[in-house]
């Protein structure tokens, strides 16, 4: 028997979790349960709407079919191109803006907790506000169109891109950086020749990954005036031309899949 502590006869139980852990978990379950009950009770659902939901859904698909392919060359093709440009330019801009912020956040580059925190706040703030909400802002400022959409995509992507970029920078090996410093290289040269070569693959992969996401995002920005396929969808919906809406949905479906295939192909080539 192990010499007992002040508690005297100390019986050891097999326990998977510590006491506090179990208390915290039980508390968590209770909170979750309360949250569900509260949500179910107070959420507003209008039953009348529910009764004809199956009918409405069926109606939706009936009206979509057959898809109005003739609308593609007239409007949708241009909208598709606009969406792709929005996604690509938005990603390039995002990467350009995220890089300085990422440098500000990376603790091995910026040795100031205050500046780190400022950068981190920029990342969280840009990411928390969705691209569509950013689009609302930029539409109010620049008027409806792809410019607003591109800026929305760019600003919203700063958070995601900057976060992963700063992590990649922090993972750069300190040895080569130290060697360049020891050779008397100025900070900018250390950045370009010591850190950038180490970060470059992650940077490219990140940009492509974000582009894939941004294709999806920019397809819907038009609903609030950000240009592209969303605009075409909005037109079709407000005119209640469901066969045209069906066409836009089909095109979005296609482009999302193509973007995913393209990025996974490019990634396998680069890395």
């Amino acid at each position: 028997m192990i010499p007992a502590g002040p508690a005297g006869a100390h019986v050891r139980h097999w326990q998977r979790f510590t006491f506090t852990e179990r208390v915290m978990r039980s508390l968590f379950y209770i909170v979750v349960l309360i949250g569900i009950v509260w949500s179910l009770q107070s959420i507003e659902i209008i039953p009348e709407f529910l009764y004809d939901a199956p009918q409405q859904t069926a109606d939706l698909f009936v009206r979509m079919w057959p898809i109005d392919w003739g609308w593609y060359p007239k409007v949708v093709h241009a909208a598709l191109m606009e969406t792709l440009h929005t996604a690509t330019l938005g990603t390039i801009l995002a990467v350009a803006m995220a890089t300085p912020v990422a440098l500000l956040v990376a603790r091995n580059v910026t040795r100031s907790v205050l500046l780190n925190s400022i950068g981190r706040f920029i990342l969280v703030a840009t990411r928390s506000v969705h691209a569509m909400i950013w689009a609302l802002f930029f539409v109010a400022v620049f008027g409806p169109g792809a410019l607003a959409g591109t800026l929305a995509i760019a600003v919203h992507s700063i958070g995601f891109t900057g976060k992963f970029l700063s992590e990649a920078i922090e993972e750069a090996k300190p040895g080569p950086i130290e060697a360049l410093k020891a050779a008397g290289a100025p900070p900018l040269a250390v950045l370009i020749k010591g850190i950038w070569p180490q970060v470059k693959p992650a940077f490219l992969a990140l940009a492509m990954f974000r582009w894939d996401i941004n294709v999806r995002e920019s397809a819907v920005l038009g609903l609030v005036g950000g240009g592209g396929l969303g605009m075409a969808l909005d037109t079709a919906l407000s005119n209640l031309y469901w066969d045209q809406a069906g066409l836009v949905l089909a095109v979005i479906f296609g482009i999302v899949i193509v973007a995913e295939i393209a990025t996974s192909w490019a990634r396998s080539r680069i890395i």
Binding site: I43, E44, I45, I46, L50, Q56, L60, M132, V220, L249
Partner: peptide, 24 residues
């Protein structure tokens, strides 16, 4: 996963009407 939540929401708004249910 292909469709953006916003597009899915549009379809549900059509199916079950405006309001929280479509969002859920």
């Amino acid at each position: 996963r292909t469709f953006h939540p916003v597009i899915v929401a549009i379809l549900f708004v059509k199916a079950v009407g405006f309001g929280a249910l479509a969002g859920v």
